[in-house]
Amino acid sequence: MGDSWAGMRRALPSDDADELTWLLFRQDDVLSLGQAQAQAHLTRKAIRHRVATGRWRRAHRAVLVAHNGPVSSAQLRWIAVLAAGPTALLGGITAAQAGGLRGFSDRIIHLLLPATCRRAPLPAGVRAHRTTHLLDEDVVHVGRPPRTAAARSVVDAAQWAPSDGQARAVVAAAFQQRLVGGDDLHEVLDRMPRVRRRRLILSTATDAAGGAHSLAELDLLRLLRGAGLPEPTRQLVRRDAAGRRRYLDAYFEEWRVHVEVDGGQHLDPAHAWADMRRQNELWVEGDRVLRFPSWALRTEPEAVIAQIRAALLAAGWRG
């Protein structure tokens, strides 16, 4: 499933290019049998000849790929949509990835179909979901292939996720990567009262919109609330000695206690030094700075809470 074919920069067809050339350009070299006949004006004999000679390949019952090399992930998405019929949309994590979401590897292609439509047999690795709630604002009309809009995609990805942890991770990542913001997910959920994991999605979206964008920061916030500790300001903007904007993960302003959660990026020496320098500047100003690796929030939550409580008490918090 390599991306060697789709990864190449494709030249825009010339103005006098025929209809077939433009169709293949728009659809990453994938087309349905119906499109080949109706839009490209190819006879069944001409189509069979291209397949028999190896110029094209049959990807599904009525879906063709106009080459015989490896099929890319973008082409697999087109194959899935065309195989499912004209009302099919990419949905959930697949649509979110098509819209730019990074960091998730789901080999299943998720489609969203109206509940009333008849579905043709699907290729292996494609999963169809039905819905009775699909408004115009839930669809990206300029998307290729057709897909749900970012907020709807994230909500569906969370409710279809195999675990609560992945559902929270998808929502947090969507905010962190600026695919959604503000009340985007709340508006979708208002239109879909029977969404699975509704409460989890709402709480995660509320926290993420409030500034705790990463999953580790959301874990920290959950621990603080469970322990009855004060709620910090999240992603507070401070300026360093050079005037650059810096974001504090969690800051208890009244007591000047700053909590930083380090993710995997801190294995990079350049990132580590930048964070150490920022921490030193905060110490110089008089803040108490506590740092925890993200894994400690999950494996040693009692130790994390104990240190934060001790720092707050030392700074004057009365408990």
Results as ranks from 00 to 15, higher is better:
Leu313Thr: 03
Ala270Thr: 10
Gln166Asp: 04
Pro162Lys: 01
Arg246Tyr: 07
Gly34Lys: 00
Gly211Val: 15
His110Tyr: 10
Asp287Val: 14
Pro193Cys: 08
Gln35Tyr: 08
Val170Gln: 00
Val30Trp: 02
Gly69Glu: 15
Gln166Ile: 11
Arg288Asp: 00
Arg55Trp: 00
Arg55Leu: 00
Leu248Asp: 01
Asp249His: 03
Trp283Gly: 10
Pro269Trp: 13
Val81Ile: 14
Arg198Pro: 01
Asp29Pro: 00
Gly319Gln: 13
Arg77Glu: 08
Asp262Arg: 03
Val259Ile: 11
Asp138Lys: 02
Arg57Gln: 15
Met8Pro: 00
Asp15Ser: 05
His141Gln: 03
His67Thr: 11
Glu260Ile: 10
Gly243Lys: 15
Glu231Val: 07
Asp136Ser: 04
Leu89Met: 11
Thr132Lys: 05
Asp268Phe: 09
Ala11Gly: 03
Glu231Gly: 06
Arg239Glu: 03
Met192Lys: 12
Thr87Asp: 15
Val81Trp: 03
Gly125Glu: 06
Gln75Pro: 01
Leu202Tyr: 07
Leu179Gly: 02
Ala98Asp: 12
Ala46Cys: 10
Gly91Phe: 15
Gln39Gly: 01
Leu134Lys: 04
Ala216Glu: 00
Leu223Asp: 00
Ala52Phe: 14
Arg196Gly: 09
Arg118Phe: 04
Leu313Pro: 02
Thr206Asn: 08
Pro230Met: 09
Val139Trp: 05
Ala36Gln: 04
Asp207Trp: 13
Arg234Ile: 07
Gln235Lys: 13
Leu223Pro: 00
Arg318Asn: 09
Trp78His: 09
Asp183Trp: 12
Asp28Leu: 04
Gly92Arg: 11
His141Ser: 04
Val71Asp: 02
Gln39Pro: 01
Gly316Tyr: 12
Ala209His: 13
Ala36Arg: 06
Gln235Cys: 08
Ser203Gly: 03
Arg58Lys: 13
Arg291Met: 05
Pro193Thr: 12
His49Leu: 10
Pro146Leu: 11
Val154Glu: 04
Arg118Glu: 05
Arg225Phe: 03
Gly91Ile: 15
Gly228Thr: 11
Ala310Met: 12
Leu135Cys: 02
Ala62Ser: 13
Pro123Phe: 12
Ile108Glu: 09
Ala209Phe: 14
Thr53Glu: 00
Asp275Leu: 10
Gly100Asp: 00
Thr148Asn: 00
Ala172Arg: 12
Arg225His: 07
Arg10Gln: 06
Gln159Arg: 14
Leu202Gln: 09
Gln235Tyr: 09
Arg127Pro: 01
Leu313Ile: 08
Ala216Lys: 01
His67Arg: 07
Gly69Cys: 15
Pro162Ile: 04
Asn280Thr: 07
Leu122Phe: 10
Glu254Trp: 07
